[in-house]
Nucleic acid binder design. Structure first.
Length: 548
RNA sequence: GCCCCCGUAGCUCAGGGGAUAGAGCAACUGCCUUCUAAGCAGUGGGCCACAGGUUCGAAUCCUGUCGGGGGCGCCA
């Protein structure tokens, strides 16, 4: 990619200074985009950042470096500036070359190969199957899926997994099933038997209705052994359907109960006992998690003989490794951050390296309507479901809004702004850039113009140069976003790319019969931009409309 | 008490060691007889919570204080 090529050129310029101007050791070398366009296309603070090791004053090093860079025809200018920056300008020919190379890649422009491709399992959402996916889960859904897309774009083998805490001994799950049964009994004319602390949401009644439609009227007296699996299956079906409405599709759905049923949990406990990381005390079995960085040891099997959720969680992570995944990413809500230490301890107790499990925490999202915070409670059923959000604003707007903010920061989701089908809504800003290009390319086709690589050297206008640089930066942005797990960088990039195109569109008329070479060159740039936009949207999981 | 996240424009948030701190929304001013005005250009608006420290250089890193959100179970 262009960035790597520039870095190599900078590196070789630095090499030439070693032993004479600067000390002969390893240096970190980097070009950055200057904020001020008057400072050229790229800049490096090499002389400043390495001032401790070069053994020479920054201004002197900067001057020597600028001179060395001038020997490379890529740079039409390279100037040292106080206190030690070197600003460079790229030649039009160089940018033309990269325009052509990037254009040939099409949407594959976004792809880059990592040095170390891994088999990565991304587990996210993992909501309990006792309620619908709501808009709070939506953030993790959008983030996890787009992170998976970023990892795929950088050459990793990725799978998306949803883990359901559906243990039959779970009080929550039992209450859920009993709540559904009570509503069902009402439907078939039996007296309700709503449990203490049960689930009050309207969806409970809808689940009951769907079960009645599928199973008939004969189950009002049945117990948990009937109701628990039936109610959970129906809820899981809803969850899958609602996530798919936002274009989040999981490769695997794993059931906690299945780990018990298959004996994997018991097997795993036995193994840990044998390796001496589980001990007995007060009648319970404890994991010596404090030996692996946790605050204290944790109970894995209660004194009544029932395993805790940690037991199945340990078995679950072992199972992930057993299935051949080398790197595990868990996307968790902020309310689970207190469990990171014990999860990490668990995999270490199993004998896996600490860094094989990466837990990414999503901070909470609040929904604002007007100036009011929308309340969210599964127990009372007081919530906005993801399904409602899809019907309200659709998957494009929802995903973009979720991804606009860093996953690591709290965010307010402005429902009023999301509902705006106008220029106020930033999603339409970026999609409009794509639709504009499509319309323009259609017009060009009708007029008989075809993009032409051999005309690329005609691109020299500042607006054209800005657009080329921005487009060619796509693989760099993808690589950085993937490495940092910062999906929101891609929304920022999308907005910048769209802005740069809109600016180009205003300043540079594309279709100009009196100047066919320039027209063909600009069409090439438009096609390239369209590919870059599509590839970016694809990572964000939003559509690329051709007309708006 | 301990742990995580946050405090940047009126609001929501980018930027997370470098040059003059940005975007969207809100306010205001211009630009459609030519490829989509869901666009562009511009104006106003900031002790980057506060106090120390590290550094040639701090919104950015460290410590502390204040303020907000979340979490600390033989619940999942």
């Amino acid at each position: 990619m262009l960035r790597d090529d520039l870095t190599h050129r900078l590196q070789s310029a630095v090499e030439r200074l070693k032993g004479s101007v600067i000390a002969d050791t390893d240096y970190s070398v980097e070009f950055t985009e200057p904020k001020n366009p008057a400072h050229g296309d790229f800049a490096t603070a090499f002389a400043l950042t390495n001032s401790k090791t070069t053994g020479a004053p920054p201004p002197l090093v900067a001057r020597a470096l600028a001179e060395a860079l001038q020997a490379d025809s890529t740079f039409t200018s390279a100037s040292a500036v106080s206190p030690g920056f070197v600003n460079v300008t790229l030649s039009d020919a160089y940018l033309a070359e990269w325009t052509v190379r990037s254009h040939r890649r099409g949407e594959a422009l976004a792809l880059s190969e990592t040095d170390r491709p891994l088999k990565v399992l991304v587990e996210f959402v993992s909501a309990n199957p006792n309620g619908p996916i709501h808009v709070g889960h939506g953030r993790g859904a959008a983030y996890g899926d787009s992170l998976a897309r970023l990892l795929e774009a950088t050459g990793h083998k990725v799978s998306r997994e949803f883990y359901a805490n559906d243990g039959t001994n779970s009080l929550q799950m039992q209450l859920f099933a009993l709540s559904v049964r009570s509503r069902y009994r009402e439907l078939v004319g039996l007296p309700p038997d709503f449990p203490e602390g049960g689930y009050a949401g309207d969806y409970i009644g809808q689940i009951a209705e769907e079960i009645r439609a599928a199973r008939g009227d004969l189950h009002g007296e049945d117990g948990l052994e009937f109701w628990q699996p039936i109610a959970q299956d129906m809820m899981t079906h809803w969850q899958r359907r609602d996530l798919e409405a936002m274009h989040v599709v999981f490769d695997t759905w794993i059931s906690e109960q299945s780990l018990h049923d298959s004996g994997k949990v018991a097997e795993c406990m036995e193994r840990l006992k044998q390796s001496g990381v589980i001990y007995e005390e007060d009648g319970a079995l404890w994991l010596a998690s404090s030996k692996f960085g946790d605050d204290k040891d944790r109970i894995v099997v209660r004194s009544n003989g029932q395993p805790t959720y940690i037991a199945s969680d340990i078995a679950y992570h072992k199972d992930k490794f057993d299935r051949g995944w080398e790197h595990l990413i868990n996307v968790w809500g902020a309310d689970h951050h207190g469990y990171i230490a014990r999860a990490s301890a668990a995999i270490q107790a199993l004998g896996y390296p600490k860094d094989a499990l990466e837990i990414l925490v999503m901070q909470l999202v609040r929904f604002l309507q007007g100036n009011e915070v929308v309340p969210m409670s599964k127990r009372s059923g007081d919530m906005v479901t993801l399904r409602e959000l899809m019907e309200d604003v659709g998957p494009d707007v929802a995903r973009f809004f979720y991804l606009m903010r860093s996953h690591d920061t709290h965010m307010d989701f402005d429902l009023d702004l999301a509902r705006e089908h106008s220029e106020k809504n930033p999603v339409y800003y970026i999609q409009y850039a794509h639709a504009r290009i499509c319309s323009l390319l259609e017009k060009a086709k009708e007029a008989g113009f075809v993009a032409d690589e051999t005309c690329a050297s005609d691109l020299a206008d500042p607006a054209e140069r800005d657009l080329i640089k921005k487009v060619c930066d796509l693989p760099f942005e993808v690589r950085r976003s993937a490495q940092l797990r910062e999906v929101h960088r891609m929304t920022t990039y999308a907005i910048e790319l769209a802005r740069t195109y809109h600016n180009f569109y205003e300043k540079c008329r594309v279709l100009a019969p009196e100047n066919p070479e320039r027209t063909r060159a600009r069409l090439l740039l438009c096609e390239l931009t369209r590919s870059a936009l599509r590839a970016t949207f694809s990572i964000l999981g939003i559509s690329a409309p051709e007309k708006m």
